[in-house]
């Protein structure tokens, strides 16, 4: 028992200071000393925010408060924890490996607008290209008739000029 505890302490000391501080402030139930009740032995930090990675609704005012740790700092902690193999000790975060992988599977290397039911907006001239070409094609199909008519009327009497 004592040997296992010393080993754990040694392992904990090998962690980077930031990670150690974090785990001291927000210890998960799995590393509490045996027999301690997770409900009653909360640190002051945990009392304030059970999951410091999530936004929280203030119990009194009902206002939403930002997470205690920004997304950037969450990602840094996750990376650090992953490198030391202790990621499961962190509370749930969207920056966690599991969520990240799930998102990657869900979305792939998605280019905006190419998903199901979406479309690429494109430049204005690209959006109007089809209409423009249609207009041109129809005008060209009408061209022999127009020229015939123009020749028949004669350019002296022609009155239909474009705007």
């Amino acid at each position: 028992m004592a040997a296992a505890a010393t080993k754990n302490i040694q392992l904990a000391l090998a962690l980077p200071t930031r990670l150690r501080t974090f785990l001291a402030r927000y210890p998960p139930a799995s590393i509490l000393p045996a027999g301690a009740n997770a409900e009653t032995t909360k640190t002051a930090y945990q009392e304030e925010a059970p999951n410091p990675f999530m936004p929280m609704k203030h119990p009194v005012t009902g206002r939403w408060h930002d997470p205690k740790y920004s997304l950037r700092r969450q990602a840094e902690l996750v990376k650090m924890a992953r490198d030391h193999g202790v990621e499961e000790l962190l509370p749930f975060t969207n920056k966690g490996t599991e969520t990240r992988l799930r998102k990657r599977v869900e979305l792939g290397l998605r280019v905006k607008g190419t998903g199901v039911g979406q479309r690429v907006k494109g430049h204005k001239h690209e959006r109007q290209l089809a209409v423009k070409m249609d207009k041109r094609r129809n005008a060209m199909l009408e061209m022999p008739n127009l020229i015939r008519e123009w020749k028949k009327v004669g350019k002296r009497d022609w009155t239909k000029f474009p705007k």
Binding site: R136, M140, M143, W150, K155, F161, K163
Partner: peptide, 20 residues
């Protein structure tokens, strides 16, 4: 004015009419 002239965009000779 009106005349048949070359339109380089469609590369044909087409009718050109004076714009109002």
């Amino acid at each position: 004015m009106s005349m048949i002239k070359y339109d380089p965009i469609i590369r044909r000779r087409v009718l050109f009419l004076e714009q109002k």
